[in-house]
């Protein structure tokens, strides 16, 4: 492992993290957000293992009869990354199941459309007028989200 290879790996890890975070922030499709999260996670794992690397070292596996004086790479980040990979798959499964439920509820994966429909739902539940532009004339502006009818409706439902 030369200096060049380590630098290339560092660039690769940082590039994966940058692409993942960029996709996480900039994409509108919910499925692609999950993909970007997975990319950023792979980059972070690679960066952690890269931090624990030591030049001219062997893998941290002790065979029987081997002298313990050999230089090993740091096993602690490797153990942590091993845990992080499995946790990452769990997080991905949770995110995908939430995406499936959101798709079943709102019929779209586009975040902007989904947010509009979600706000319309909240407005309808609160008994407010459907949201119009904030620059509409005074009568047509959206009402504040807190409203008495919702509280009355909840009390009525409990009774």
């Amino acid at each position: 492992m030369s200096e060049f290879a380590l630098l290339t790996l560092l660039i690769g890890a940082l590039g994966l993290i940058a692409l993942g975070i960029g996709g996480l922030v900039l994409s509108r499709n919910l499925f692609r957000i999950v993909l970007a999260l997975s990319l950023a996670e792979a980059g972070a794992n690679l960066l952690l293992v890269l931090v624990g690397f030591r030049r001219d070292a062997v893998a941290p596996i002790i065979e029987s009869g081997q002298a313990l004086t050999a230089i090993m790479v740091d096993p602690i980040p490797q153990a942590m990354v091993l845990t992080a990979i499995v946790i990452g798959v769990g997080v991905q499964a949770l995110a995908l199941s939430l995406a499936i439920r959101a798709y079943a509820a709102y019929g779209t994966l586009d975040m902007s459309v989904m947010r509009r429909r979600m706000e319309a739902d909240i407005d309808a539940a609160a008994g407010a007028q459907p949201a119009t532009s904030l620059h509409a004339p005074a009568g047509g502006r959206p009402l504040p989200p807190i409203s008495a009818p919702r509280l009355a409706h909840d009390k009525g439902a409990q009774a």
Binding site: A42, N45, V49, L50, V58, L82, I85, V86, Q92
Partner: peptide, 24 residues
């Protein structure tokens, strides 16, 4: 594998590529 972490590489290939790809 190149960074001398064969166990992590095994897990990443099986879980990260296989299981996660199946899930996706």
């Amino acid at each position: 594998v190149i960074l001398r972490a064969p166990d992590v590489a095994l897990t990443e290939a099986a879980v990260g590529a296989g299981l996660s790809g199946l899930l996706l």
